[in-house]
């Protein structure tokens, strides 16, 4: 059984068909990339998988369970986490607090317990703090834990978001253009980090424009063009696919690294 199965997804905005007939499967333990020119529907696809948008047709199953109609918080509880292309951090909190919010769904005491059983709550709080610090050090931001997120550089903010996503202990991590806005060195570090995440048995689904990084780290690639899948396969297969070459060399994108 595949970890994530996407079957016949379609979604339109007004008259624009953003996605149609999109089907693919993500296997456990892989880094699976989705590429395509701007407007190909990659972010829409992520929004549908994470539950922020409903598809107009099609079905998504995760671990064999239909998650198509679930609200976002249930999908995240089911084990799918994501990051945003444009960051979505809690600006009024510290770095550590941001990551601790990610632990929220792995915590056990509810509002009533929090009010009634103070010692237990404090214990839980401590465990969550420690776990969050662990995730922060795994992305190399341990020293920034108490800083307000607003004080961090863009690249560091990306890492905070990544740590928050990891803190939910996902089985599947959706990364929406994680390298955009990063300098080449940061991008290299990020590639390392993504590999490490995969090796920690978190499957990664990745949308990315940085072709060298995609070709470098992906196990499997899906190419979208105007909302339709036109090719899928290993990096080597994609690099050799005549249709992909035609699209990418046909103007919109000059992926020098291809």
């Amino acid at each position: 059984m595949s970890l994530l199965e996407v079957q016949g997804i379609a979604r339109a905005f007004g008259g624009v068909q953003a996605l149609q007939e999109v089907s693919f499967a993500v296997e456990t333990g892989q880094i699976h990339a989705v590429i395509g020119p701007n407007g190909a529907g990659k972010t829409t696809l992520f929004n549908i998988i994470s539950g922020l948008l409903r598809p107009h047709a099609g079905r998504i199953t995760f671990l064999g369970r239909d998650i198509t109609a679930l609200p976002p918080h249930r999908i995240s509880r089911a084990g799918i986490a994501r990051t945003f292309q444009t960051l979505a951090l809690f600006e009024n909190m510290t770095v550590l607090e941001n990551v601790m919010v990610g632990r929220h769904l792995r915590s056990h005491s509810g509002a009533v317990a929090a009010a009634l059983r103070l010692p237990r709550q404090l214990h839980e709080e401590k465990r969550i703090r420690e776990a969050a610090l662990g995730y922060l050090s795994s992305v190399g931001l341990f020293s920034k834990a108490e800083a307000p997120v607003s004080a961090l550089s863009f690249g560091q903010r990306r890492l905070v978001e990544l740590a928050r996503a990891l803190a939910t202990e996902p089985r599947l991590l959706l990364l929406d253009e994680p390298a955009s806005g990063l300098n080449p060195r940061e991008t290299d570090d990020l590639a390392q980090l993504i590999r490490r995440v995969r090796d920690d048995s978190v499957t990664v689904l990745l949308v990315e424009h940085d072709m060298s990084m995609v070709m470098d780290i992906s196990d499997e690639i899906l190419v979208l063009h105007y909302g339709r899948p036109i090719a899928s396969g290993s990096p080597a297969e994609i690099r050799a696919d005549p249709e992909v070459i035609a699209i990418y060399l046909g103007g919109e994108f000059t992926g020098a690294a291809c």
Binding site: S50, G51, L52, P71, P72, H73, S76, R77, A81, R82, F84, A88, L89, F90, E91, N92, M93, E97, M100, V101, G102, H104, L105, R164, T168
Partner: peptide
């Protein structure tokens, strides 16, 4: 903290599993 997360960024809060 979850309430403050909703106040700050509802979408991100949902995706962190907050109802």
């Amino acid at each position: 903290r979850a309430m403050r997360a909703c106040a700050s960024n509802p979408e991100a809060a949902m995706l962190a599993g907050i109802n």
